[in-house]
C-alpha cells in the first residue's frame, strides 16, 4: 500500500481486532471474530462474502450503525467504538454517506429534499442546503430531476439520487451496501460507473457486495468468511 501522494496514506478507517457477539438468551453467536483492516483516504475497497459471513455486521459497524463488542474502530482518527447513540448519529452524519440496496428515499419528498436530509441534521441553513443538494444532483447527472419525487424516477435514477444524498455532506467515506442488488444490468453499470468516477475524483468508497464482478471494480477486495478476514485481493 505504498501509493503515490501523502493524502493516499492517511487511514480513514482503522479496525483493530473487532469482534461482535450477539446474545439471545443463553445462545451466543459470534458474528465477527477479530477483524483487522485499514482503509486509506481515496481508496476504493470492496468487502465481499456470502450471506451469513458477518459481512452485514461489519457493514453496520463500519457505518456506525452498531458498535463492536470488543476491539477498536477509528473513523477519521476518531474512536467510534464506544460512542453513545447520539454521538454515533453525529459521526454518521459527518463521516459516512450511505447508499442502500433499497435506495431508501422518502417517497413524499422531491429528489432535492431527499438529498438535503443529511444537511438538515448537520444544521446547515435552508438556502445553502438547496444549493448543495442541487449541485450533488447535477454531479450524479440528475440536474433535470431536482423536483421529481422518487416515484417518478427509474430504479437507476433513484439509486443515483441516493448517491447524491451520500455525497452531499462531504463525508469521509461513502458506504455502499449492495447498491446494485435491486437494479437491472444497464442501471447497475451506470451506478458502478458513477462510483468509479467518484473514486477517480478522490472519494473514499467502501462497497459491500456478494457479487465478484461488482467487487472487481474496486482497487482492493476484502473477503469475509465466518466472521474473519479470509482473503485480500488487490487489483492488478
Amino acid at each position: 500500500m505504498s501509493a503515490g501522494g501523502a493524502a493516499r496514506t492517511t487511514p480513514v478507517v482503522e479496525v483493530e481486532d473487532v469482534r461482535k457477539t450477539y446474545r439471545s438468551g443463553t445462545i451466543e453467536f459470534e458474528a465477527l471474530r477479530g477483524i483487522d483492516m485499514r482503509i486509506n483516504q481515496g481508496e476504493y475497497v470492496a468487502v465481499i462474502g456470502p450471506s451469513g459471513s458477518g459481512k452485514s455486521t461489519l457493514m453496520n459497524i463500519l457505518g456506525c450503525l452498531d458498535v463492536p463488542t470488543e476491539g477498536r474502530y477509528l473513523l477519521g482518527g476518531e474512536d467510534v467504538s464506544r460512542m453513545s447513540e447520539a454521538e454515533l448519529a453525529h459521526a454518521r452524519n459527518r463521516r459516512i454517506g450511505f447508499v442502500f440496496q433499497q435506495f431508501n428515499l422518502l417517497p413524499s419528498l422531491p429528489a432535492w429534499r431527499n438529498v438535503e436530509l443529511p444537511l438538515v441534521y448537520a444544521g446547515v441553513a435552508r438556502a445553502d442546503r438547496r444549493a448543495r443538494a442541487v449541485r450533488a444532483l447535477e454531479r450524479v447527472g440528475l440536474g433535470d430531476r431536482v423536483n421529481n419525487r422518487p416515484g417518478e424516477l427509474s430504479g437507476g435514477q433513484q439509486q443515483r439520487v441516493a448517491v447524491a444524498r451520500a455525497l452531499v455532506g462531504e463525508p469521509d467515506i461513502i458506504l455502499a451496501d449492495e447498491p446494485t442488488g435491486n437494479l437491472d444490468s444497464a442501471s447497475t453499470t451506470a451506478v458502478l460507473e458513477l462510483l468509479d468516477e467518484l473514486h477517480a475524483s478522490g472519494r473514499t468508497i467502501v462497497l459491500i457486495t456478494h457479487e465478484h464482478d461488482v467487487a472487481e471494480r474496486a482497487g482492493r477486495s476484502l473477503v469475509i468468511r465466518d466472521g474473519l478476514l479470509a482473503d485480500e485481493l488487490v487489483a492488478s
Partner: peptide, 16 residues
C-alpha cells in the same frame, strides 16, 4: 419505521 431508520442513519439523533 423505515423512514425513522433512514433519518437516524443519516444523522438524526434519538432526541431529534
Amino acid at each position: 419505521i423505515r423512514e425513522i431508520g433512514l433519518r437516524k442513519a443519516l444523522g438524526a439523533t434519538p432526541t431529534v
